[in-house]
């Protein structure tokens, strides 16, 4: 495959992430993540001395998820694991009961968090992760994983590494990173990748649609580069919270 490392992250932005930690009072850790899509109006303002370039941001829609973590807590006898903590995930849709797709999402989040957590140091306990969908404007799964990761980090539970999920879609001719729901209408395939913060290894991959092997590799590469942006965001977030203390 031709090395597409020339690809410039600045050109293909992820939608801006915003995150707040400890949003809920009862759980041990909680986080709210919004991933907003926007378009930029670029205009030039000419004054007597200078010419400014002004970016005006228009927010179209956000994907917003609230995650809560309880743990390590007491575990039901039927779920007990003698060598590690058992991890439960509950995904709450915006309205109504969870359907099959939601169950699928739940499982992916559970498996991802299981990889990230050092569950062996809390045997015979449970870690419960609850996710509440607030709004879906595309990339809900990646938003859920990022929110769950932030909530786990907020709870102070021991983790091997952090994870960052990046979604992308394959349209007729190119790969679009972090597509919004409007972009997704013209997609042939949509892919979500999860990377770890230690070695940027692939932790989870969820795909739907038709794509070639090259397209898969290319999107994996692009998403891996974009994941660095998310890890940078995590670090700046923690720094911001530590300054407050």
């Amino acid at each position: 495959m031709e090395d597409s490392a020339i690809f410039n992250v600045q050109e293909q932005w992820l939608r801006p992430l915003r995150c707040e930690l400890n949003v809920l009072s009862r759980p041990d850790g909680s986080a709210m993540i919004t991933q907003g899509s926007y378009f930029i109006l670029c205009c030039y303002v000419n004054t007597f001395l200078y010419s400014y370039r002004v970016h005006i941001f228009f927010f179209k829609g956000n994907t917003a998820v609230v995650a809560a973590v309880y743990g390590p807590v007491d575990v039901k006898p039927q779920r007990i694991l003698v060598d590690k903590a058992s991890i439960e995930t509950v995904y709450k849709p915006k309205s109504g009961l969870p359907n099959v797709a939601d169950r699928m999402r739940e499982t992916i989040i559970k498996n991802t968090c299981e990889t990230a957590l050092l569950s062996a140091i809390h045997p015979r306990t449970a870690v419960c992760i609850v996710l509440q969908e607030m709004q879906d404007s595309g990339g809900l799964l990646s938003c859920c994983i990022n929110a769950a990761c932030m909530a786990l980090m907020d709870s102070g539970i021991a983790m091997k590494f952090l994870v960052a999920a990046v979604s992308c879609m394959i349209s007729e001719d190119d790969i679009i990173l972090d597509p919004s729901d409007k972009d997704l209408m013209g997609s042939k395939a949509s892919l979500t990748f999860v990377f770890d913060s230690a070695k940027k290894n692939l932790v989870a991959s969820h795909t739907s649609g038709v794509f070639s092997q090259e397209q898969y590799h290319e999107s994996l590469l692009k998403c891996r580069q974009a994941s660095c942006e998310i890890f940078e965001f995590y670090r700046s977030l923690v720094k911001k919270y530590i300054i407050c203390i």
Partner: peptide, 9 residues
Amino acid sequence: DTFHQKRYV
């Protein structure tokens, strides 16, 4: 030194 922890181990 963690910045926030609620659950006791």
